[in-house]
Design a protein around this nucleic acid. Structure first.
Lengths: 259, 259
DNA sequence: CAGTAGATTTACTCGTCAGTAGGTATGGAG
DNA sequence: CTCCATACCTACTGACGAGTAAATCTACTG
C-alpha cells in the first residue's frame, strides 16, 4: 500500500522534475541514459512579466481551484504555483505563507458571496420577499462559482485553525443576518421569539441551504431560481402545509424571470 | 509557522550516528552528553498484552478522536498510535494503511449512527411521529458521540477519495430514507410529488439537521429533544405558520419525556 | 519449565512538502 | 543605449510523515 499510495489522490505531474534532485548536472550520459530517449522535460517557459496586482489575482484563482479539489492540507504550494503558471517563490513573495494564502482565499470568496447576496436583496421589500431574493442570489452564486463554494463550505469549516475561525466567523455573520430577517418577519406578525429561537432557526435554514446546494451540484438540471423556490417552500410553508397542497409562490413582479 | 506547527516530540536518533565520522572515540565520554540533567525522554512503558479485538477497539476509538480533531490528512499515524497507547507497527498490523483505518472508522461510526436512529423509530407510528422520533434519536447520538459526528460530518465528506465516497454513500442512504418517509407523509394526504421533489426536500432536511447539530454543539444548553422539536417545528410547520402562532407539538404519550 | 504464537517494540527508509538563498531576465526611465 | 527595480527562476534545505524489517517480550500450552 505504500509504494502506490499516490493512486489515492494527487496529480503530481511535477514528479519528473523533482526526482532528479541529485543535483549533479555534469552527469555522464554514457553510463545510464540512452541519449535520445532523454527528451528535455517539458519545462514551462518563463512567465511573461505582469504587474503585481494581476498576478495576485491569478494566484488566488489558482489557489481557490486547488484548495477546492484537495482541501487545505492536501493541497501543495507546488501545485498551486503550477496551476497559476508561475514558480513557487512568487507565491511566497506575493501571498506569504500557505496559511496566509488560504486565509486570503477565504476572505475574498466569502466577501464575494456576501456581496452577491446583499446586492440581490432589496431592504425595502417585505421580509419574506427578501428571504426569497437572498436565496436566489445564494444559489446563483453557488452555480457560478463552484470552486469558491467548495472552499467555503467544506474545506474551511473543517480546519480547526485560525482560518477555520475566520470562516466560522463569516458563517456566523450569515446566520446572524438571516436571524435578523426572521425577527422582522415575526414582528411583522406580532409573534415574539427568543434570540435562541431565531438563531437556531437561522442555523437550520443556512444548513439546509448549504445541503441543498450540494445536492443541486449533483443534480444540476434546474435553475438557481427553481432550487431557491424549493427551499423557500419548504421553509416557509413546511411539510404540514405542503402535503395538504398549500404552497408558496414567488411574487410575479420584479422576479428576474428564470424559474 | 513552519518550524513549530507540530508537537515537539520526535526523536531523530539517527543524527547521532551521522556525527561520528572520526571513528576515534578516545576519552569522548566527557565531551558529548550532559549525563544527569538531560532527563531521559519519558518513554511510554511497554503496553500490556491484550487480545486483538480489544486493541482494535481502542485503536479505532483513538483514531476517531484524532481524525475528529485534525481531519484525515493532518492526522498522523504517529499521533493516533500514541493516543491509542501503542506503537505504530501495531496500527499497521491490525488496521492496515491509513486509508483503510479511516474507512473503517467511517463505517463503524456511520453504522452506529444509523442503528441508533433506526432503533429509535417505530415503523408502526404515523409518518410525522416517525420523523420526530428519528430527529430525537439523531440529536441524541450527536450529543453523546461528538467525535463520531465530527468525523462523519466534516472530515469524511470533504475528502474526495474512496472513503469520502463511502461516506457520501451513507449520507445518500440517509437522504433516501428520509425521502421515503416524506413520500409516505405525502401519500397519506393524497399529495403527489416527483422523486426530485422529495429528494431535494430530504437533502435540505438532512442538511438542516446537520447544521442545527453544529449550532447545538456550540450552544448546548438544552436537551436533544428540545433541539429536535425546534427542527420539527421548522420543517413541519414552516415560518409561515410559525409567525402566526401555529406550532407543532410533540405527541404526549410514548415520549421519552425530556423536553 | 520449555516452546511457541502472537503481541509489541525500536530503529530505520523513502518520498513529499513548506519555505528559502541566490541568481537571471526584462521593461521602462533617463 | 544603459541602468536598475522588480518580476521571475532554478536549485536547494530541513523536517515530517507513511510504511516496514527485524527483532524482543510475554502469556499460555504441554
Amino acid at each position: 500500500m505504500h509504494t502506490d499510495t499516490r493512486s489515492v489522490g494527487h496529480a503530481h505531474a511535477r514528479t519528473a522534475e523533482l526526482t532528479d534532485l541529485g543535483g549533479d548536472t555534469s552527469r555522464d550520459d554514457t553510463t545510464a541514459d540512452p541519449p535520445a530517449a532523454h527528451a528535455a522535460p517539458p519545462r514551462r517557459p518563463r512567465a511573461k512579466r505582469l504587474p503585481r496586482a494581476v498576478r495576485e489575482r491569478q494566484i488566488l484563482d489558482a489557489a481557490v481551484a486547488v484548495f477546492s479539489r484537495h482541501g487545505f492540507h492536501a493541497a501543495s504550494m507546488d501545485e498551486i504555483s503550477e496551476v497559476a503558471g508561475i514558480s513557487k517563490p512568487m507565491l511566497y513573495a506575493y501571498l506569504g505563507s500557505k496559511d496566509e494564502l488560504f486565509a486570503t482565499c477565504i476572505r475574498r470568496e466569502a466577501t464575494r458571496l456576501m456581496e452577491t447576496i446583499a446586492s440581490g436583496v432589496d431592504p425595502a421589500d417585505a421580509p419574506d420577499v427578501q428571504l426569497w431574493s437572498g436565496l436566489r442570489a445564494f444559489f446563483g452564486f453557488v452555480s457560478e462559482h463552484r470552486d469558491s463554494w467548495r472552499v467555503l463550505h467544506r474545506q474551511a469549516s473543517s480546519q480547526g485553525g485560525p482560518f477555520g475561525e475566520e470562516l466560522a466567523e463569516m458563517r456566523r455573520r450569515a446566520i446572524t443576518l438571516v436571524a435578523a430577517l426572521l425577527v422582522r418577519c415575526a414582528s411583522n406578525q406580532g409573534a415574539a421569539y427568543t434570540q435562541r429561537d431565531t438563531d437556531s432557526m437561522a442555523a437550520a435554514l443556512v444548513g439546509a441551504g448549504e445541503s441543498l446546494a450540494d445536492w443541486w451540484l449533483d443534480h444540476a438540471e434546474e435553475s438557481a431560481g427553481a432550487t431557491a423556490a424549493r427551499l423557500m417552500n419548504m421553509m416557509w410553508m413546511g411539510f404540514g402545509d405542503l402535503v395538504e397542497g398549500r404552497v408558496w409562490h414567488p411574487p410575479a413582479h420584479r422576479s428576474t424571470g428564470e424559474d
